[in-house]
Amino acid sequence: MRIESRKENTSFRVRLQDRMTFSDHGQFRDLLTEITREKAQSAVFDMSELVSIDSAGLGMLMIALEESRKGGWALSLRAPQGHVRKLLELACFDKLIPILH
């Protein structure tokens, strides 16, 4: 997975591209730590270019949710497509994390 992130004022814009799998664990954790360290108030993860996510990827989103609660920032996901969207809905993640379309 390719991660692009930039900080705009107090908000992080994160673009996730390609596939989100177990091997992305390290870099994703680093990003979450950075968001908290930068004292961001919110972070939007743009998923429109993410083509697939596996169960470890869903696990990482849970970790992101926990980190956002601890770090005091608001997490939201934007525009998941196809397989990713179906999986998020099947797992009821749309009830846990706000999804912007």
Partner: peptide, 9 residues
């Protein structure tokens, strides 16, 4: 299709 939270979260 039946949605449901994964166990443990």
């Amino acid at each position: 299709v039946l949605a449901g939270f994964p166990f443990g979260i």
